[in-house]
Design a protein around this nucleic acid. Structure first.
Lengths: 182, 182
DNA sequence: GTCACGCTGGACCAATCGGTCTAATCCTGT
DNA sequence: ACAGGATTAGACCGATTGGTCCAGCGTGAC
């Protein structure tokens, strides 16, 4: 399941991102995590001195970077904001089908942790990063700063909500029809 | 915190709904649950033979009923669909401020359980119930069946996504501006 | 060669997990 | 008053939890 060629630290992050995403922070024990990453307990606490919580922050950041890249590639070739938004929704739908993601990985990983303030701040920072990325593309495509901000937040809301409905129905179609709602 | 006058079974459901909502299914141990409900372990397994998972289903149903009632009261006095939707968003914003809800209670309770198929089916059924309730009000207010369904799903998506953003920002304002997006 | 250090492997720990079981108690119908 | 089911109270259980600790491994520099 996990590339054995990857360095241990990366394998831990990848396994954590995958498992937290599907079962939530509290739903995954260190035993499962280490078995999936094929790493011993010593390595975990060497790379992440604070253990599970440190790993969760790293996994969330990793997942966020993936999302940022998805946003960038969706809008890079777009002529209009609407085009970029539609492409993003279709890419997310494909991702939904491939990985059967159960939740927004950030929510699953960060909104349960023991140290709520740190986790919550990190989650908020990540979400604002996504919105900022969309905002920048919107501005580049000609929207006024206020319109760009509004559109970016609107798209965020649609994607979060659309993902929730897609998960409940186990169908990615909801995500594909999202762009019609903008 | 919990009314001592309520029967034990109801106290268990109420505590479960509250705790699962804020910390997620796996984030709450039976010890916390029983302490909050001021009930001994024997009572739990008397009223809910399958223990924690039975209780989670009951708690989710209870939370869903609350939401259905909120939808009904929002649309009952409304002249147009838009009016009802706006009222609902404002009521949810107030609820957000009062309870500091962290997640959609259904998602927090049901999308983690050990028996994924049962839990998932229950969650899906509950969500469709919300959409159906909105659909009926929309149809009553003059929308065609197709429009009513589309509007109901659109509102569901906006609320789910808007709640996620409101939670990250710790501000209910996001929910109040939602109705402008319909 | 050998020293030092980043990393691994896993034994071990107290605490907590969800769940079982039985005795005591409460309540209601007669 | 009494019977008997419904409910409560909590001791107890094995499994698992996240975390600590240290001995050993591999590999570079000198």
């Amino acid at each position: 399941m996990t590339e054995p060629a990857l360095p241990t630290k990366d394998r831990l992050i990848l396994s954590a991102a995958t498992l937290f995403r599907t079962r939530g922070y509290n739903g995954v024990g260190l035993a499962d995590l280490l078995a999936d990453a094929k790493a011993p307990k010593g390595s975990l606490y060497h790379h992440f001195p604070n253990g599970k919580s440190d790993l969760a922050l790293a996994a969330a950041t990793w997942a966020s970077d993936q999302m940022l890249r998805l946003i960038a590639t969706s809008f890079d070739g777009a002529e209009t904001f609407s085009d970029g938004a539609t492409t993003l929704c279709y890419k997310l739908a494909k991702l939904f089908d491939v990985t059967s993601w159960d939740t927004c990985p950030i929510a699953a990983t960060l909104f349960e942790g023991p140290d709520n303030t740190d986790f919550r701040a990190h989650a908020s920072h990540i979400y604002e990063g996504w919105i900022a990325e969309v905002h920048d593309h919107a501005a580049r495509l000609g929207l006024s700063p206020e319109d760009a901000q509004a559109k970016a937040e609107h798209l965020f809301v649609l994607i979060q909500g659309g993902w929730a409905l897609a998960r409940a129905r186990r169908s990615s179609d909801t995500l594909r029809t999202l762009s019609k709602l903008m």
